[in-house]
Design a protein around this nucleic acid. Structure first.
Lengths: 189, 189
DNA sequence: CCGTTTGCCTATAGGGCATAGGTAGATGCA
DNA sequence: TGCATCTACCTATGCCCTATAGGCAAACGG
């Protein structure tokens, strides 16, 4: 009986890969067990249950995405930062659809508060410093940007832009341009 | 043995109600059978399988939402129409979270093409007539609006706006204002 | 009023989740 | 080095959801 060398970390990573390949909805303890050539019951020694596994994948994805965004916006400001932020976000969703879906997995408030989700909010606010918005406008802007980024990524992933043959990339650039204009026009200064 | 009087329509409607109460993910043939005090196997006489049921609920929700939007924008133009459209959309998502989720259920291309989804696209384009955008800007705008509407509804439903005590309603109004400005500034005339 | 259709049934099988309890490989300590 | 312990993975089991096959009785149509 050779041991498979399971651990919460390996299961989480393998779960993320499985999500990208087959969709987050296909991430099951059974499927993961098959991937490690192990019986499903064996996984319960490393993760509490199915929900725990999904939560770990979600936290992992949030962290990874936050890292990429942080990397992208480093040393940039204004529209340059906006574009970098937005592209990092969209690129992640395209490269890792399953992980992106996982990042939207509903977390309980405590877990969410301790997650990289707060870094996302902080980075968005940092990004907006370039637009000099006073409260409550800044919060409005955070929500608007979040909506556009998530909405676009979500619709694009669902194939919502496949009907028309105008490239999704062009609409994305156009949208970012709109956002930049809108934010600049609302600048306090 | 009293008959329950099942039909595809009644199952679809009950499924939509179940979705609103417990979430679209909780819509199962078993749960629906319980609701009609009937055995799960009995449902297969009316719907092909679980996927078929969910597809029916999705189509129903798309239709219902399109009706509401059509009603809201009737006789309006410009920012007035934009606001009415957007509010109808968001209000539906808030009043019927399960049906809204269902409306995002992935349909195969054929089904999608025959669904009320095309009415949504048409109405969005009609809305944009007030802004006089030439192609490909119009397509870009359709995508941007879809992203914002869906993104906002999605984040709000997920409780993403609960952390800050600034009302989601205010951010929504602010966002629509931004969109209106952005679209007007890109008008061809 | 009888035959056919149709609506819901039981029985059954497969797959995912989850727990209880067993066994063998790895580890630690004398 | 050898034994005790611990830990990783196992089997067995039960529940729930999906799905199919085949049966019986209520409803309907002539």
């Amino acid at each position: 009986m050779v041991r498979a060398g399971l651990s919460p970390e390996r299961l989480t990573l393998a779960g993320a890969e499985l999500a990208d390949e087959a969709g987050f909805g296909q991430v099951t303890l059974s499927a993961l067990a098959r991937r490690f050539d192990v019986k499903p019951a064996s996984l319960y020694a490393h993760v509490k249950n199915s929900h725990d596994l999904k939560t770990r994948i979600a936290l992992f994805a949030l962290e990874e995405l936050a890292d990429r965004v942080a990397d992208a916006v480093a040393g940039r400001a204004g529209k340059d930062a906006l574009t970098a932020f937005a592209n990092a976000y969209r690129d992640y969703a395209r490269a890792h659809p399953g992980r992106y879906e996982a990042a939207r997995y509903r977390l309980d408030p405590q877990t969410a508060a301790a997650s990289a989700g707060v870094r996302h909010a902080q980075m968005t606010r940092a990004l907006l410093r370039g637009y000099d918005l006073a409260e409550p406008d800044q919060t409005h802007a955070v929500r608007m940007l979040g909506s556009v980024f998530h909405g676009y990524a979500s619709l694009e992933a669902a194939g919502g832009f496949d009907h028309t043959d105008i490239a999704a990339q062009q609409s994305w650039a156009w949208t970012l341009d709109c956002l930049d204009t809108a934010l600049r026009s609302r600048s306090a200064s």
